[in-house]
Amino acid sequence: MRTALWVGGLVVLLALCALAVALGPVALSLREVRDALVGVGDPNAIAIVRAIRLPRLTLALIVGAALGMAGAALQGSLRNALAEPYLLGVSGGAAVGAVLAFGAGVRDASAIPIFACLGGGAAVGAVLLIARAAGGRADARVLIMAGVIMGAFANAVIMVVLANAPPNTVRGAVWWMMGSVADAGWAQIRWLAAYVLVGAIALLLLARQIDVLALGEEPAAALGLDVDRSARRIYLASSLLAAATVAAAGLIGFVGLMVPHIVRAFGVRRHRAIVAGAALVGAALLVAADLVARTAMPPAELPLGAVTALLGVPFFLLRIRKLA
């Protein structure tokens, strides 16, 4: 039963990957895709597959997996089915970092992620400081409130910066804030993969602690868990995943929120399996969303963040009775 779920998930993911490489402005058959991958046949097809679609697919896979894992870990450890990195200020901070860099005239595409990571890190630090000042410990409610405040502050900063910015800065910043896995390059994928691998291993090792934390602070302490330290570590690992994805692909909402719900709906209950399942489902969801973004209204490409939100809103409307 469990194995069947995993195999089924992998099959769906692989099918989506095949579609993502085959479909686009130039539609390729699966045979052409296979030929292009091994480097034979039409040089144009080889270029499209190897230089454009494959990196884009890989970026979508990693970003989706990272957002899914971060959402699963945060929802479990904060005991809140509405928690996700975007609610906790990390993404807002990363966005501020990137927009400030745009505003300061930074145009080098490889430099923007560094500023995003700095902004995300600053937001995480600020949230932890607020939580400590408010109660001296990593209380879930305090963390969520501090994160929401940080997100609102980040929005305000972005608005102020953009109010005085020249039009092309605004366009660049807005495009980035809507999220995208277009223009993916292997160099960018390599550093993102490194960050995501670290965060993923950390979360899988912390997964049993998430099971215990999900019971609440006092029961978790009664089971011998150092609640504050554990909550802080899970928050930091999730933030690392979120900040790295925001740096690489901008703001893509709803994935971290939706994916853990989908995984739990299949009856997965332990967080090691939930986190791993969220990586799988998150990757599949983002590949599918990017496929929609690229192919729904050609030749225009829809912003990826808008597509995930358009998927997420009906999803939560359907589940709202269960969540309430």
């Binding site: 479990g76 005991r79 809140n80 089915a81 049993r208 099971d211 215990v212 999900a214 019971l215 609440g216 006092e218 029961p219 009664a222 089971l223 011998g224 868990l225 739990r264 209950r269 332990r270």
Partner: peptide, 22 residues
């Protein structure tokens, strides 16, 4: 402890098994 409220679904056996966490 006095207060404990579950927020996520969990079969009772899995819940009891968390007692083995230490």
């Amino acid at each position: 402890p006095q207060r404990e409220s579950a927020v996520f679904s969990l079969p009772v056996r899995e819940y009891v098994a968390l007692g083995r966490y230490p």
